[in-house]
Write a protein that binds this DNA or RNA. Structure first.
Ligand SMILES: [Mn+2]
Ligand SMILES: [Mn+2]
Ligand SMILES: [Mn+2]
Ligand SMILES: [Mn+2]
Lengths: 229, 229
DNA sequence: TCGAAATGTTTGAGGACCCAAACAATAGCA
DNA sequence: TGCTATTGTTTGGGTCCTCAAACATTTCGA
């Protein structure tokens, strides 16, 4: 039984409830409405429907939660969402915003095998840093977006690709702080990973790992070094 | 104007009408219904709606066609569909059936940039046959699907990956015909491309190009040769 | 040519979403 | 402890998509 697939909308409601119910505020009708860009009255109706299907439990005016069955579906969708977003950002080199949008739309139709292979392809490329750099350089030049070796902000450097620091576009205390952390012109630098919302960014310099805001990373000019370790 | 995006269903109707209207039969209500797995009455309603939106033109009981505007949308969707399917089959190595299904579901939410980068990534891998072979070997072994160098049917060999013919599983006239075409044990063989429906398959042997049915290709046992030209 | 068979449309109805407006409950403040 | 602002629900109404059944048209064989 339960061969019936849930609608994309129902899946989005469950995914949102799961995410919000993990916050101290819990999942409130108004917050769900804001997250999904619908009116609170629409959420009320959706909650009633999810409750009837045995996916959500809540008492009117009270807290919203998921049943074990609902949680299972929600976690599956959330997993698809992050798999796709990771592929779009880390492998395809898209922005967090674009990746987020496309992932939340495509997550409902991506089959397990598709997600699996995307993950494997990302692993395959990352496993060889030189290769990863070649790929990102190739795709960056393909559409005239950015010539290889040309400068960009550190915030635009894809995770795993190495670059050389060219300069720091700021003359405030930030510059001093960065220099103290070893971010000086000529040094090799790489982005390790970017938080889901694009902030903060984990950076590696001189064997050290440091965390910085996206806005700060944007002030660090770098030159891509595809092919380097 | 027309910032309004069409619904996924409307896009599917347009895509189907475009495809069918290119056949000698033309786009008939019943054929559209069969293609989209809905009742003819549902198609009638959909056609009326598309007509009101200036996307389709038809006279009751007559032929269905697309307006220039409708054709534009339909061609866009059809393009997304083939881009995704191509990525799923040629780059991710999925079956035609799986790719078709996932592509037609995800095409409605894939952004232009996502499609673009997927295409570039496929080009990047194909441009270096050794690399393509490494990737397909890696993903084939990753899930214990198939060990590298182990035999499979030619029908399961991803396009662009080279292999060596090990034997032919048949003792009919087919064997003779294949041998005449140069398909003998020990020879290098590769799949050039697979038709959208999985049949026929274009194969390259000894510098010649030949076409065979998927069922025939399945009888040819090959051993993958990742890394070869 | 002239029915039947095949094909297509209309009608009536229901489910899934969505909203605005009216209504109800809760939370927070005096 | 009230009283009000905030939050949540209900109600009534739409759109989109779907189907079954009744009806209309076209096609095709006798
Ligand atoms: Mn979603
Ligand atoms: Mn999502
Ligand atoms: Mn589709
Ligand atoms: Mn499609």
């Amino acid at each position: 039984m339960r061969i019936e697939r849930l609608s994309a909308k129902a899946e989005d409601y469950l995914e949102t409830i799961l995410r919000l119910s993990e916050t101290p505020r819990g999942a409130r009708t108004g917050d769900i409405a804001a997250a999904l860009d619908v009116q609170p009255s629409t959420v009320s109706a959706a909650l009633k429907s999810l409750k009837e299907q045995g996916l959500a439990e809540y008492t009117p005016y009270g807290a919203v939660g998921l049943t074990p069955k609902g949680r299972q579906v929600a976690e599956d969708i959330a997993g698809r969402h992050v798999s796709l977003r990771r592929f779009f950002t880390e492998t395809l080199g898209l922005s967090q915003e674009e990746a987020e949008l496309a992932a939340c739309g495509m997550e409902h139709d991506a089959t397990p095998l598709v997600l699996d292979r995307m993950g494997l392809l990302g692993d395959f490329l990352r496993q060889n840093p030189a290769l990863l750099g070649q790929w990102h350089a190739a795709r960056a030049t393909a559409k005239g977006e950015r010539a290889p070796g040309v400068e960009s902000g550190l915030d635009e450097l894809p995770p795993g690709v190495r670059a050389v620091v060219v300069g720091i576009d700021v003359d405030s205390g930030l510059r001093k702080r960065l220099v103290e952390m070893g971010v000086t012109p000529g040094v090799l630098i790489a982005v390790e990973r970017v938080a889901p919302l694009g902030d903060p960014i984990a950076v590696e310099v001189r064997g050290y790992r440091l965390s910085m805001r996206k806005a700060e990373a944007a002030r660090i000019r770098v030159k891509w070094r595809p092919g380097l370790i």
